[in-house]
Design a protein around this nucleic acid. Structure first.
Lengths: 230, 230
DNA sequence: TCAAAAGTGTTCAATTTACACCCATGT
DNA sequence: ACATGGGTGTAAATTGAACACTTTTGA
């Protein structure tokens, strides 16, 4: 019942490459693994996995991210398809790149040992196999644009976070410094944050109030034609 | 010499779907074809083609666009990868969507008959097979953002164009009206257009001066940290 | 001579940027 | 009591939005 026309076509290996990003110590980190098989076994690589016949693309990403982080229900976005003929030196593989933003607190550190993985500060990532470095560049560029236009940064923070935390996150994303008063004014004016009663005292004596992102309020805002922008 | 690990994996049909866009009569048009083979033979569809083993993704797009338009060296951009398990009802096909912007003047009208294709006004596109309508939505959204931030609109115009033409193009892209004086001020201040000595008299008695986009000037602008925005 | 599209500047409003001091608290 | 990071408002500058009339010329 498969149409004949399809049968005449070539088929290809298709993989996903996942850029798993976390935020700690005021910096963005990329999860990097040592490749487990030839060719280039042992070299630094993005997390990857081949697509299975019964999986959609995002299901494959979800599976790979879960495997490497133990986290489910992760925020992800597609970066693009990479299909130069010789990009994978083993066989021809077309790769679909996705980045995933995780709260690094809920990351299972054990899994680093299992997978020979490590968190590498984003700005200091060295050589990666194939075109993975290019994929990373494209991802950073896309993340910057997206983070400026939609409230996706919160995926990198715990449910409760402080405004200083949020600001250093955006400073890490944009690789710049931001004015404290302007930043706070802007984010608070949107009224998408809910101030909590308790404080984080881990980084100052005075303590900084916790906030939560309120997705419902954000959705209402969208309906009214307002847009997130930082 | 192919690594064993790869051999264990499934392989997939991979196609590109091309959204070929043109501009005429103050409106954007999408090239639509009647599907040539089963399943859904005869229904409206984007231009597509299967990837060949010796082709990169953009080479496949270039080939498909050439086949349907007779145009080479076309501006294109990737929209994304579409890979839901059941998206193609014939077989599982992972599709990589690209849009291409062409100068509709240089389009070979003959090819419409050869391929059962037609230009459909973008805002009136009806049902399309599979997830092609979704792909179209995503494309329009991406095109709007891109056109606002980079000088890609010129790919939809002849080499020489007038400012009224350019303005109606942007009005078609954004689906809004723009203030003539503000528009002209903004685009001319960038100094990326070169005024010609001759006029287009086809749409008014007085005639409107032709301009050309100057890519060199634009690149210099980029180096100085200025950015295109319309 | 008149209809139809091309061309041209200024004012006001909104947004963005720059900037400095007091507060709370643990040591 | 003091050091450390948290928290707050205003003024200036820039950018974006609104707006109306003159010019050219073919029919």
């Amino acid at each position: 019942m498969t149409p004949l026309f399809y049968k005449d076509q070539e088929r290809f290996y298709v993989s996903v490459d996942c850029l798993i990003l976390g935020f700690k110590n005021d910096k963005l980190y990329l999860l990097i693994t040592k490749r487990k098989f030839e060719p280039l076994k042992g070299q630094d690589s993005l997390m990857g996995g081949f697509i299975r016949p019964d999986e959609s693309l995002s299901e494959t990403v979800t599976r790979v991210v879960y495997e490497y982080t133990g986290i489910q229900d992760v925020f992800m976005e597609q970066v693009g398809a990479y299909g130069e003929v010789g990009r994978d030196i083993g066989e021809r593989v077309i790769s679909l790149a996705y980045y995933a933003l995780i709260d690094i607190q809920s990351f299972d550190e054990q899994l680093c040992k299992v997978h020979n993985a490590r968190w590498q500060e984003l700005e200091t990532v060295g050589e990666l196999i194939f075109d993975h470095k290019q994929i990373l560049q494209d991802t950073i560029e896309q993340l910057r644009k997206k983070a400026a236009a939609e409230p996706i940064g919160f995926n990198l923070l715990p449910e409760k976070f402080t405004l200083p935390q949020l600001q250093t996150l955006y400073e890490a994303i944009y690789q710049t410094t931001l004015d404290k008063r302007n930043f706070r004014k802007k984010i608070l004016e949107m009224e998408i944050l809910e101030k909590q009663d308790d404080k984080d005292k881990s980084s100052s004596k005075r303590g900084a109030f916790y906030y939560k992102f309120n997705k419902e309020k954000y959705d209402q805002l969208l309906k009214k034609g307002y847009y997130f922008s930082l």
